[in-house]
Design a protein around this nucleic acid. Structure first.
Lengths: 346, 346
DNA sequence: TCCGTCAATTAAAGCGTTTTAATTTAAAAG
DNA sequence: CTTTTAAATTAAAACGCTTTAATTGACGGA
């Protein structure tokens, strides 16, 4: 049916091993013969059979990525970075989305390693169950955790320092000369939310500012939660001078509420988000934010997994990356006149 | 090293074929024996080797998806739908993102079929080159086009009726009692943009409205392009009564500009976008839009490809799906008082 | 009791590669 | 010109499963 390595060998007048060597660009093939093989391949339109190669070599050349099925720029960016890194290493990416934790633990990712479909998996889902991770460990299936601290279980992982991000975001607000700084948190089931909140608190403490629990609202990484929190403060007549939102979505909600009540940003209200959502830079005023190293997260995650696969990793190493504050127009920078008309809104 | 089918057979006291039959749940295994096999598998923690199965069966159990690496809800939603459909059919999804057309044509997707990594591929990228498609056809590699009309090349595809969407969006604006309706198009290199524009024009014609070329702005599916277009009309003193934006991003830009100039939506300016971006429903006012059947697109795409793989498809069929107008607060519906204070902005 | 039939099982070949070990060829050294 | 060494090639086994064809076994009818 389809042309195989024997057909190529016959056409080239050489043995299959020579053909195989060319396929795996082994150095021990005379250049003259290599050309003959290449020519035969081209003439026959030969395509190596991946299954056969995998079987013989004992690996799959594929990496699995488990991630939540949510349309979020952070997730997307990491996904792109992982795919690119995997591709650049000559491998392929198999994606397994999980709508729920339940689905995640049992359906696809399970099959992915139960059927030996991939050489190893990366797990981006923040709500992966400990049980699932333990199962992977028990089965000695290679994996790396992305952006999650699983304190209970030792596992190789690449994370982003959310405490640092929260601290820096708050500090950059403080640097604008503002004192009553509110925070709208993300869902507290995520460790990242908790860390950002802690960073916020620590910054306030370090700069001698009061921590007002009434200015800490519980959000859930949604536009709506930001809108509601801000509306709550407005209705209470307790409008903060600045808001550190747990993510940009939340910040967009704050902007929406502020715009509705003619609260000028950043003169009356300074604002900073988190995640560097692409929309942020297009709004007027443009949203200050904390940019996560998504590209590095993806790339280093893949590298770490590859090292695990190569057996180069002894213990459960954790790589921690630092996010970066991006100041745009919703914050008042130190050197920026706070009443510059360019920064007033509508 | 790892436990294989022979180990299971030995443990169960049966032959490998019986074990294989159980694996493929063939009916011709006595239930008593099936239990023995299952028990042995569990005891030995047996995991079938996918490569070996693929080699023996002649397929890979994998579907490839080629798509652009852009963070866009439409893309994400189709991706989720495809992954789910693929998973539900017991297969796996291999994703290949392409940052550019160049990268798309030559790098990953090429390898995907050159190495027989997948049984077939779905192509979501709107800017796939004709050359690439022809190469797939020439190689008789099974594929299905998603959301793209490739008039030049006959190929099985699932598309969404953008003309219809543009027409309905415009018609819904007209139904609100508005006459001077502007349009901000998407990049005209996309057939979808052209179709939406044509639908818009046809609606104007059908309702006896004048087509004013000055009210047709060239956008590119970005917040910025919407902002600029709207600002352009404002500066020209030629503010339309309504805008049909080629996508929600563009509409967000329009809202931003309107808010900056205290133009009330929908009383002074009615607005409708396209794509049903999750943000749209969270804004105040909530954005009216055209929802694309992303779930159906993904699912039917997979089904069509599977039919192609099964050899059930004779000619290059094209399935066309219809989008759906979602009216929220930025449009004035017929039965809705156009001056209701709830709909005025800031 | 024997034979035929059907169902269930087994033996063996094959899927397309890689890889180890053995062999041939070429080149260099004596 | 022979021998030694290295380089390149070849033969054959292995990877783990599926599948075709052959075999065994059980059962009922004559």
């Amino acid at each position: 049916m389809s042309v195989n390595i024997y057909d190529v060998a016959k056409r080239a007048g050489l043995s299959v091993v020579t053909v195989s060597r060319v396929l795996n660009n082994s150095p021990k093939v005379r250049d003259y013969n290599r050309q003959k093989v290449l020519k035969a391949m081209a003439e026959l339109d030969y395509k190596p059979n991946a299954a056969a190669r995998n079987l013989a070599k004992g690996d799959t050349g594929m990496i699995g990525l488990v991630l939540p099925a949510v349309d979020d720029p952070f997730i997307s960016q990491v996904l792109f970075a992982v795919e690119r890194a995997v591709r650049e290493r000559g491998m392929f990416l198999v994606t397994a989305f999980a709508a729920s934790d339940e689905e995640l633990s049992h359906a696809n990712p399970g099959r992915m390693f139960l059927e030996n479909r991939v050489d190893g998996i990366l797990i981006l889902s923040p709500i992966i169950s400990e049980e699932y991770i333990l199962e992977l460990k028990k089965n000695r299936f290679p994996f790396v955790l992305l952006d999650q601290h699983h304190s209970a279980v030792q596992a190789p992982s690449v994370t982003v320092d959310n405490f640092y991000g929260g601290y820096q975001a708050t500090a950059s607000l403080i640097a604008g000369g503002v004192k009553r700084i509110a925070h709208i948190s993300g869902s507290t089931i995520y460790e990242s939310s908790v860390q950002r909140l802690e960073g916020y608190k620590q910054a306030l403490r370090d700069y001698g500012l009061h921590i007002d629990e009434e200015l800490i609202a519980a959000g859930n990484f949604s536009v709506e939660s930001g809108y509601k929190a801000m509306m709550g403060w407005i209705e209470l007549g307790k409008i903060p001078e600045a808001v550190f939102a747990a993510d940009d979505n939340t910040a967009f909600g704050v902007m929406d509420a502020a715009s509705k009540h003619k609260i000028a940003i950043p003169t009356e209200l300074a604002l900073i988000g988190y995640d560097d959502h692409p929309f942020g830079s297009m709004l007027h005023p443009a949203l200050s934010t904390v940019r996560q190293p998504t590209a590095a997260l993806g790339k280093q995650g893949v590298d770490l997994l590859l090292n695990v696969l190569a057996g180069k990793i002894k213990r459960a190493v954790t790589i921690t990356l630092k996010p970066e504050v991006v100041l745009r127009e919703t914050t008042r920078a130190i050197n920026r006149p706070s009443c510059d008309p360019n920064y007033s809104v509508s």
